[in-house]
Design a protein around this nucleic acid. Sequence first.
DNA 1: TCTGGGGTCCTAGGACCC
DNA 2: TCTGGGGTCCTAGGACCC
Length: 436
Amino acid sequence: MPFTASEMFGLMDCNNFYASCERLFRPDLTNRPVVVLSNNDGCIIARSNEAKALGIGMGTPYFKQELLIRKHDVAVFSSNYPLYGDISQRVMDILMQLEPDVEVYSIDEAFIRLPTGRHRDLESWGRSLKTTVQKHTGIPVSIGFGPTKTLAKIANRFAKKNPSAAGIFVITEQQPVDRLLAAVPVGDIWGIGRRHAARLKKHSIHTALELKNCADTWIRKQLTVTGLRTAMELRGIPCISLEKTGPAKKSICTSRSFGQPVYTLGDLQEAVATYTTQAACKLRHEGLRTTIVDVFIRTNSFKKDAPQYCNRRIFTLPAPSSHTATLIKVALTSLNAIYRPGYRYQKAGVLLNGLVPENYEQLRLFHTPAPCNEASLMKAVDEINRRWGRDTIQPAAAGLAKEWHFRQMKKSPAYTTRWSELPIAKASFPESFSMA
DNA sequence: TCTGGGGTCCTAGGACCC
DNA sequence: TCTGGGGTCCTAGGACCC
């Protein structure tokens, strides 16, 4: 089917983003394989091309790859989100200066909407964007273009995988797009995950082209309406629009695995108070308040032989709040109710739901409104922590030693966001050099 | 010994309303 | 004896994304 696109979509994606960020201030790592680990140094979540070539899999537990990593002298980093977040912002700023319709889709990806005719030659425009980003931030990017977001994603995949594309690929109406789609396994399509891919394979649907040609009613039945939208997008019919400003958050979650097993209620209380503090801070940052506080704890489900326990308690507040102390109070009450001694706890978390804008107030007949100094107190605390570092002021309940805290053994410096960790450049001048 | 975290959307089923 | 139909809201579970 020919496309009749009135607009095109671009997808710009940073190559091996976290690994590329780690390399920015370490030129000695240029040709050395690099991997970045998840929180707690648990799984491998980013790999440089050299690391991919060694066969190090995405998402595999670090301890399973340790031998290979040592053998090939792979550089290993704990994840450094302040660094990645800051570099991401710089990349996105460049893009947004050049184009008005940009959707920042994730830390390392952005969609761009381009009305037909805006750029006569998308390929050369993409190439110049790629050069600009590389020049100003040092981050290599790939860009794919297509008449729908899903096709732009596929174009991006070709841009990365085909050396001849050199990082830019355009799917246009003139192209034999079916030939491209025949080379894309269903599991590589945006929106088709592992479960759906397995189900499609069972029905002998192996490629994007085969999915595109399935009957709508069949797709709807097998993959629900989201799968049908994906199929339509493969046909060049846009069903997923550009979201320039993300919709307001519907939930905020802070949860972590512990650096070492936790047994006592005291340690769990510290952890839950810490996570609640962080979640409340995010909440205020978004200009929201919460009405539902959900606390959960659980043991390590990978340890089949150890006794397992997991539980949660959902508490509905009488009135919306973003006051840290109020939220900690209900979170700890919930925790105390679900805690059972004798288990080796591995993870805890706090999930805030029922979010409302901070200026929204549903008055209750018998409820006394929160004193208005709560808001100013929180504002002062946030400002102090912003200026002097996250835990400059924290509730006593969150503890100081935090022995349960997750591990980050191989973290690089916060090169761009902390004065004390700025990289130092040293210049040496030849003997003959003279300032005269 | 060691297996991430933070989100969204969809559906089915139950409870409840008039 | 005969016991409707249409709707909303909530929750749990499944699936997806990066």
